[in-house]
């Protein structure tokens, strides 16, 4: 087991290396660089200044040398220095990661806390109005674009009702978190509800559920001990895989609500061609994704006794 975990963590290294390689070259062949972007749209810096800046940032060196330098830093845990902000990427990210984790976790809580019960009830009451209603909600949840949902929420709860602050981080307080988290969580919740429903319907047809019913135990015990536990693996897999796209979606939501997280930092850095920041953000997001999926793979072992990560059966 421990061996497996160590092996998985070691496998992170080539994954991250490979991604950084692709990303580095793509970002560096994009038209324009930090020097041309730093002037803004109207103002064009003169030739001499840009040349100086390029030299200062090391942009005049060949690509492979820059990549090599960059990787040398990464190995030491140094993501480099922002081209435009005069701050280390490490510091920028460490300031921005908490707000992102805050709304991501809140979104997961919303998604899991509402999605799983909703899907479960739908499956048990298949074909009833509850089922229809919750599945319509789920389909809408998946299809509604976040920027639209966010704007509507802002309009209703801030402008019309004046209940919630429309934008910003405040001091990271609960009220400021509500709208970004909900916007982020709705699609995720809908997806989990649908997955849960499908998984429960599948498990309900299993022979062992019939056996459980034949034992004369309460319907609640049948549903919890026999149905729910057997759907958990499938639900967890969805939760894990979708977590990746959730972090991707923070880009939109954070920008919309001026939420000072990794997502908005990432967007800004792309527009400014602040390549070290872009790369740092992406690598951190990937790291989180890898860790979350490792944790979920390890949870499988806790849930399902048939799954074992030992050398003998691999």
């Amino acid at each position: 087991m421990l061996q497996y975990v160590v092996k998985r963590i070691l496998l992170f290294i080539p994954t991250i290396f490979f991604i950084s390689l692709i990303m580095f070259f793509i970002l560096n062949v994009l038209p324009g660089d930090a020097t041309t972007m730093s002037g803004g749209l109207k103002r064009q810096l003169d030739e001499q200044t840009t040349a100086n800046m390029r030299k200062q940032l090391g942009l005049d060196q060949p690509l492979h040398i820059r990549y090599f330098k960059y990787m040398k830093g990464i190995v030491k845990g140094d993501f480099g220095k922002s081209y435009l902000r005069n701050e280390s990427v490490n510091l920028l990210i460490s300031e921005r990661i908490m707000p992102t984790l805050q709304i991501s976790l809140a979104a997961i809580l919303i998604a899991v806390g509402i999605g799983i019960p909703l899907g479960f009830i739908s499956a048990l009451k298949q074909g009833s109005w509850i089922d229809t209603l919750s599945m319509v909600t789920a389909v809408s949840g998946v299809s509604i674009p976040q920027f639209w949902l966010g704007l509507i929420l802002m309009y209703v709860f801030s402008l019309v009702l004046n209940w919630l602050p429309p934008q910003g981080y405040g001091d990271g307080g609960f009220m400021h978190m509500i709208m970004p988290s909900v916007t982020l969580g709705v699609g995720y919740m809908a997806l989990i509800a649908r997955t849960t429903r499908a998984a429960v319907i599948e498990v309900l047809n299993e022979d062992f559920v019939r056996t459980a019913r034949a034992k004369g135990i309460s319907e609640l015990a049948v549903n919890y001990r026999h149905v729910f536990k057997n759907t958990l693996i499938l639900i967890l897999t969805t939760v894990g895989l979708q977590f990746g796209s959730l972090v991707g979606q923070t880009v939109i939501v954070e920008k919309l609500f001026s939420w000072p997280g990794i997502g908005s930092l990432l967007v800004d850095s792309i527009f400014q061609r602040d390549i070290p920041v872009t790369q740092g953000c992406v690598l951190v997001i990937i790291g989180v994704f890898l860790i979350v999926n490792l944790v979920i793979d390890l949870l499988y072992v806790v849930i399902d006794p048939r799954i074992k990560y030992t050398e003998s059966n691999r």
């Binding site: 022979d207 034949a214 135990i217 309460s218 001990r225 536990k229 057997n230 048939r306």
Partner: peptide, 27 residues
């Protein structure tokens, strides 16, 4: 249903055809 549950498994019980799938794999 409640009265039936007292009979099911207790006074009338059942064995099914498929032993491979009739037991809950997680318990």
């Amino acid at each position: 249903e409640k009265e039936m549950r007292k009979i099911r498994g207790n006074r009338i019980s059942m064995i099914f055809q498929e032993p491979m799938t009739s037991l809950n794999p997680l318990l």
